[in-house]
């Protein structure tokens, strides 16, 4: 039975979970999507602990609201939409908390605005440091652009899929991706010299 389930597509698995409440089907879907969602949320939030919580929450929502999924949509876009919304909520919650801490504590304020972009030139060639710099630069990009850039360039989703996830027209998605890339390149100008 399990062997048969693993061969099913995402849409077939969720249908099985919806119709027969097959927990194995749910588990297979969790296995398939936990890592891509972790990667997406981590790149969006920049915090591993928070991203684990968000993905767990996404899976719980998927479990509880399985009937709200409609078969005409792709399962991947549906689960990405849930994860993106939860990640955005987490970001808003963090912003509120940061504003509150800045108002109350000056020491924390200096920590919040610390510029991690400054690195020694000889270390900048190291790929690990480069990746860290890219991640830090990505977090400085506006969330509306960051989301689409991650979905397109890191998660490798098509424009149509991104359009379905964000609810934006394809043209808008494309322009947002370009603006996001431009912002990112601007933050990484010492790496990508034009």
């Amino acid at each position: 039975m399990n062997r048969q389930l693993t061969e099913l597509t995402d849409e077939e698995l969720i249908k099985e979970f919806q119709d027969n409440n097959t927990i194995e089907a749910y588990e297979i879907l969790v296995k398939r999507y936990k890592d891509p969602l972790m990667n997406f949320v981590y790149r969006f939030l920049g915090d591993k602990d928070a991203c684990t919580d968000v993905v767990q929450e996404t899976m719980i929502k998927f479990y509880l609201n399985k009937d709200s999924y409609r078969s005409f949509a792709k399962f991947s876009t549906w689960i990405y939409t849930i994860a993106a919304n939860l990640a955005k909520n987490e970001l808003k919650r963090r912003k509120r908390r940061t504003i509150f801490s800045i108002d109350n504590n000056d020491d924390e304020k200096s920590l919040q605005i610390e510029d991690k972009m400054f690195l020694q030139p000889d270390r900048a060639t190291d790929s690990e440091i480069k990746n860290e710099m890219i991640q830090n630069a990505l977090l400085k990009v506006k969330p509306v652009y960051r989301e689409v850039v991650i979905l397109r360039d890191i998660q490798d989703l098509s424009y149509e899929e991104i359009s379905d996830i964000t609810g934006l027209p394809i043209g808008t998605v494309k322009s947002k991706i370009n603006r996001g890339r431009a912002q990112l390149q601007k933050f990484l100008k010492h790496i990508y010299k034009e």
């Binding site: 890219i134 490798d156 990508y192």
Partner: peptide, 16 residues
């Protein structure tokens, strides 16, 4: 943005 896009694609994938 090809270089940037390439670097973004090659970023290490975070696992659960």
């Amino acid at each position: 943005y090809s270089k940037l896009v390439n670097d973004l694609k090659n970023l290490p994938h975070i696992k659960a």
